[in-house]
Amino acid sequence: MKTFINGMPAGDIEGATWIKAAASADTGVCVEMTRLPQGGAAVRNSTDPDGVALIFTAREIEVFFGGVRNGEFDHMFVA
């Protein structure tokens, strides 16, 4: 079974289906995610598709998305 590690080349994640938010489609700049076969997810920058991938467990993604939904990161962005 393949081991996925933080900082690995995103292009090395074979069979990945990278997904981005529909709202970013016209900008060409976005964060993309893919599910990993053993669970969890990888995240990459769409402007560098063969650059590094950050690897997260399913629990890490769940907690992060919960924080996003609760507005815990809103202060980081200017509207």
Rank of each mutant, 00 (worst) to 15 (best):
T34L: 05
T27K: 04
D48P: 00
C30D: 12
K20A: 15
A22G: 13
D26W: 07
D26I: 13
F4K: 00
N6F: 07
F56G: 02
G66I: 04
T27S: 14
T34H: 00
P49V: 10
T17G: 01
S46E: 11
I13Y: 01
M1C: 13
D26N: 13
E32G: 05
A23R: 05
K2E: 14
A58I: 03
R69I: 12
E72G: 00
M8P: 01
G39S: 07
D26G: 15
V31M: 11
I13R: 01
F4M: 08
E62T: 12
V43I: 14
N70Q: 15
E72A: 09
E72S: 12
G71E: 06
Q38K: 02
V52P: 00
V31T: 10
A16T: 06
P9Y: 10
T34N: 02
T3W: 04
M33K: 00
S24C: 14
D12R: 06
Q38G: 11
A22Y: 05
G51D: 05
R59D: 15
G40I: 08
S24L: 13
L36Q: 01
N45G: 05
T57L: 09
L54E: 11
N45Y: 09
N70A: 15
F4R: 00
G28R: 00
T47I: 14
Q38D: 13
I13G: 02
H75Q: 06
H75K: 02
D48K: 04
I55H: 00
A10C: 06
D48V: 14
R44K: 08
F65W: 12
M1S: 11
I5Q: 10
A42R: 01
L54H: 06
A53H: 02
D74M: 06
N6W: 08
V31A: 11
W18D: 03
T3L: 15
M1T: 09
G11D: 06
A42F: 00
A22L: 10
G7H: 03
V31C: 07
G15Y: 03
F4W: 04
F65D: 09
L54W: 09
S46C: 14
I61P: 01
K20E: 15
G71C: 08
G71A: 06
A22Q: 08
K2N: 12
I61E: 03
E32Y: 01
T3E: 14
S46F: 07
G71H: 08
D50Y: 11
A42S: 02
F64I: 11
K2I: 15
F4P: 03
I13D: 04
T47L: 11
V63M: 10
E60Q: 15
D48L: 14
N45T: 07
I61T: 03
G11F: 06
N70M: 14
F65Y: 09
T3S: 13
T57A: 09
A10I: 05
G28C: 12
